[in-house]
Structures are given as C-alpha cells and as structure tokens.
C-alpha cells in the first residue's frame, strides 16, 4: 500500500485504464499538452497521443455531447469538466441524452461516459467557481453519482466508472487534490454503490461525503475527546443510487443522526438522507435528525465571508451536542 495524493491516484487510474483499453479516451480543457488543471492527466498526452488525450475547445456542452455520441459506438470517454460550475453548460447533454438514452431507446443504446469535475468552495474562488452541484446530478434518473473522499476512493471509483455501462458523474473537490492517503499497489475497483464506515461509534451517526467526511472525522475526534460521545462516520461516496439500507442500518445502531454537507441545505443530500431515515427507521430515532449545511447564499469572495458561508467541524460538534440536549 503506497501513499498517493488525490490527484496522483486519479492520474494513475487514467493511465491504467488508457493502457487497458484502446477505446478509452480522455477529453477536456487543458487535459493534454497542459497536463490538466489539477494534474490529473499529467504525462498522458505524451504517452497516449492527441487522438486519445484530447484538448477540447471551451465548449462544455458540445464536447460532453461529443463524448456521449462516441460512447454510443463503444468508445469509453473520461470527460473532465474543469469546474463543476461549468457543468451547468453541459447539463443538457448529461441529463437529456446520457442519462435518458437507454430508457428512451427501450434498452438499445447506452452512454458509458465518465464525467469528472471538481466542485466546492476552496480559497476565495468567488461565486461562479465555488458551486456544489451534487444535488442536481443525484436527482437525475439514469446518472450515477459518486464522490471520493480520499485517494483510494478517487482511484478505485474512476477505475470502476470507466468499466461501468451507465454514465457516471464523479464529483471531486478543489481542496482535496493534494490530500494524501493509502492506495492499494495492485489494481483496485471500488464499488459504485453502497457506503463506507469511516469511523465506528455507538452514540450518533455522522453522514458525510467528499470533503464533509473530513469535517465529520474531525468533529468525531473532538466529541470523543471532550464530550465522551462516540460518533460513527458513514462515508456516502455513492450519492446516486444512495445506500438506503446502509443509512438505515447505521442509525438503527446509534439512534441519532447528523448529515453534513458542504452545499446549501435546500433539496440537498441532507434533505434526502433525512427523508430516508423517516421512511426506513423513524421509530429508531431518539432525537430529530439534523443537517449541517452551507448558508443559502452564493459563495462570497471575502475570506471572512467565505469562511462564514460554509460549515466547519465546530458546527458539526454543536449539532451533535444539540441532539443530546447539551447546548
């Protein structure tokens, strides 16, 4: 087990999948000669050539559509959208074509594309480069949505997504590309469904995904150290389909739940998870479940305002203490 950074893990998955199958291609803005904005495709242009590692014009909807059209005939494109904010432009082809084509063709055609894109607030990127769009993507039937919280998942989810015959959206995060973590030395395919136990605990379940898993883990340490509360942390790396059974199973053990999301609360992951708790295990709950979310504003530029707009580990700690009536 070697230690890789998040971007190195993604780069390795690209490299292996390009080597494994000549129909795998990589497309996006600056993925080729420039090696990728976040280095996720560094060196691949030199290794696999311009026909397979394709620098696209800045035409998000149409190069995404081009990848989808190529996938109809057996190509396996990995499409990088430089920022999830730009994915709005490609939403027509993702939602109207990729996600629906198998259904509306009665099973004849599918669009096995992988679309990777980083979202999230990072370091004063401003309103139009800080959006979180997972709530949009996870609402589209026919589109799988996964979101890695560490290098192992980043590597294994991309590997599995390339081999999957559904379109898969991989939601990455601007702040996480330099995160280090262990990745298996041999080939590893991470499941595209389910959830992972990131920390065991008996008193409360903290649900997180992507960057918010780290907020949950930080909060869990504080809760154990300072408050004697043992929090279980469930990593929802698969947002669509969501692991209904796993979500309910954890809360049936702990009887309390907090959902932590870096996005705004309305119509989001927290809303969905809490609805699942109501539907699957309402009578297991000892307290009303809570959400820890971003404030419902466009992400501001000023450092202090940006910090105030998004959730932090301390907010998670406060929410948990609230569940125990200790605030």
């Amino acid at each position: 087990m070697g230690v890789l950074m998040y971007w190195e893990a993604i780069r390795r998955a690209h490299d292996e999948e390009l080597a494994n199958d000549p129909m795998v291609i990589v497309m996006g803005e600056d993925v080729g000669v420039a090696g990728g904005t976040y280095k996720a495709t560094r060196g691949l242009y030199e290794k696999y050539g311009p026909e397979r590692v394709i620098d696209t014009p800045i035409s998000e909807n149409s190069y995404t559509g081009l990848g989808i059209g190529a996938s109809f005939l057996g190509v396996r494109p990995i499409i990088e959208l430089m920022s999830v904010n730009f994915a709005w432009l490609a939403l027509d082809q993702i939602a109207n074509t990729a996600a629906k084509v198998r259904y509306m063709s009665g099973g004849q055609l599918s669009a096995p594309v992988v679309i990777r894109s980083p979202g999230g607030s990072a370091h004063q990127l401003g309103s139009q480069h800080s959006a979180r769009m997972e709530k949009v993507f996870m609402s589209i039937a026919g589109l799988r949505v996964v979101t890695p919280s560490n290098p192992r998942q980043a590597y294994g989810l991309l590997k599995s997504a390339v081999r999957c015959n559904d379109p898969v959206f991989i939601n990455e995060h601007e702040l996480m590309y330099n995160l280090k973590g262990e990745v298996p030395d041999g080939e590893y395919f991470h499941p595209l469904e389910g959830s992972e136990l990131a920390r065991e605990g008996r008193d409360v379940t903290l649900f997180g995904y992507n960057v918010s898993v780290h907020l949950c883990l930080q909060a869990a340490d504080v809760l154990a150290r300072e408050h004697g509360i043992e929090a279980e942390v469930v990593d929802l790396y698969a947002l669509s389909p969501l692991d209904r059974a796993g979500i309910a199973r954890s809360v049936a053990r702990t009887h309390r739940a907090v959902v932590v999301e870096e996005a705004e609360a309305p119509v989001g992951v927290g809303a969905e998870v809490i609805a699942i708790l109501n539907e699957e295990c309402f009578f297991e709950l000892d307290a009303p479940p809570r959400r820890v979310s971003a404030r419902n504003v466009p992400i501001p530029y000023a450092r202090n305002l940006e910090k105030a707009a998004v959730p932090h580990a301390a907010d998670v700690v406060q929410a948990v203490l609230g569940l125990f009536g200790r605030t």
Partner: peptide, 17 residues
Amino acid sequence: GGPFPLAAGMAKAIQMR
C-alpha cells in the same frame, strides 16, 4: 440542436475504429 455533437462523437468513434 442536441444531435450535432452526438453525430460528431459517433464520427470520432468511427475514426478511432
């Protein structure tokens, strides 16, 4: 206008094959 890029993509696949 949705099929414009899809057609180009199929052509890309033909070119690769």
